[in-house]
Design a binder for these strands. Sequence first.
RNA 1: GCGCCCAUAGCUUAGCGGAUAAAGCGUGAGAUUGCGGAUCUCAAGACCGGAGGUUCGAGUCCUCCUGGGCGCACCA
Length: 610
Amino acid sequence: MPTQLRGHFYLILIRAKCYTQGMIREDIKEIIAKALADLQKTGALTSGDLPEIKIEHPEDLRLGDYATNIALILTKKEGKKASEIAEVIASKIKAQNAKSIEKLEAVKGFINFFISKNYLLRELETITEEKERYGAEKETKKRIVVEYSSPNIAKSFGIGHLRSTVIGQAIYNLYQFLGWKCFGINHLGDWGTPHGKILYQIKEKKLKGKNEKEKEEILKNLTIEELERLYVDFHKDLAANPKLQDRAREWFKKLEQGDREAKEIWEYTKTISLREFERLYDLLDVRIDSVWGESFYENMLKDVVEETKKKGIAKESQGALIIEYSENPDTGKLPPAMLVKSDGATTYFTRDLAAVRYRIREFKPDILVYETGVEQTLHFRQVFEAARMLGWVSGEKFVHVGHGLYRFEHGKFSTRSGETIHLEEVLREAILRARKIIDASETGRGLSEEEKEDVARAVGIGGVKYNDLSHNPSSDIIFDWDKILNLKGNSAPYIQYTYARCASVLKKAGEKNNGEIKYKDFSLEELLILRLIVRFPEVAREAAETFSPNLLCNFVFDLAQAYNLFYASHRIGDAENNEAKKFRLLLTQGVAHVIKNCLGLLSIKTPERL
RNA sequence: GCGCCCAUAGCUUAGCGGAUAAAGCGUGAGAUUGCGGAUCUCAAGACCGGAGGUUCGAGUCCUCCUGGGCGCACCA
């Protein structure tokens, strides 16, 4: 581009972007880049290659909406004080007269940007036009496979599986929001020796000496509680009789080899479990595209094992077939992984490997995400590395999002000792507590019995999910009823309350908001909301890119808090003048949309009244 | 024994190599003849586990130590 046109081009670019989406961050980067390039040309900057421009949000909003530390980084190269360099760059940026920037300051080596009120207002209008689509992106060609939830059959759905379920769902939602084609997979734990244990138990404890008809009756009426009890009992018996382990292995072997009886009993346990899980997913408002448990990959295993042999990756060792890894700068030296046990049965490693191949072929994804407990980190490293060694990988990115566990203070839960907290129990209790609060506070809101039930569900379950999602995935969560069902502070009910408050204000104010807003004398509280709310698209992107739904929680809580602060000190429906009223109603609308948007990405409901 | 992760206020957590370490819960004090008090305001509360190092600058990066979690082939 000819130099004389460049300035003009930037202006157009800036203006064009102002009216579209809230990616002012990129605009500011460009503005800085241009200023630096100009300064280089005139010799004011002597550094040859410039460092990457990074911009951030100052912690204190009084210092601006964005800041760059470029001058601080350049101090050494330039041999000048940071404050001097910052001044020079800042004045060059000022000369560009970018409309989206209202104020620019060079303070202590930082260059601070204040977004113009006009830009903020226009962005607010965009929010109310695009509503729930604000921040979303158009369909792209990108594809992502997300494996999540993945409970084990024949066990009740414990609170431990809540993490994978809600984090995975949020990641799925986020990428969908960003225009990706998403494929969700529920990788049920329905294969392997544990199921041999269950089969053995059912056969020994339930079906012994029964005729065909009785057997069918017993199997049909099995419950998840019974299955779980059988599993716990097995481990009690195992302590006294270690040989039982062999019996479990035998039964799994039978299942793997297609033994009819084993298969039949197994089918029953699976059906019973799925029925249970479906109820939980309904309650949680989670929908997973495909339920493909480990057994799904069963018929691909032989082929995969053959391939590892053919490619010279598999190795025999003590009667088993393993993969050994060599030293690798990225992963270090991984310990060997087991493909086939000495008794000929496969392991979950083999099945995960088959799953990788299947998913790459089937979906041609750009990213494969696995949301499981952190304790599987090594396992997935081994799987991903094996897939690379097999030459299956061509640019696909593998991401293991390992989550921490729900723990008591004294340690983790274990199904074997029967110390499980059932998710359903937690959800029911949460709904009950929410209901009590609704009944206590419901005066003149006129909610019907049915509405109250719906709201109690939305609030109770939303609370449980939010409590989970607001933690960084990798950190453990100490199980504590009071924290899980918290209705105050950084919690779903607080945010839902704020949403309902917005909805109520809008409803009472009645009329739709039309015409240009002239109001510009924003108060601090109003400006705070504006400055926060426009960050939403940026936050959604970052949450997706870093697989951290908790960033959405941080953001939406800040926004709700800002709104409540504003609400406490401003009249909306009967504001001091019509311009103020119009603006504040628009602001309220914007906040409502973005809250709904955020919670929607977390699969948390936003009732209009509560 | 080897490897990975973690340690921030009484508790639960934010914190992107940069500005006075930020919230919520809990605690104490206050706010409504007002659109939802499931709200808001104020206060107390942190030598960021310890010791070195790198850097103009470290809660953030490196090394060691302490404490905790997890994993290391026939469990998933």
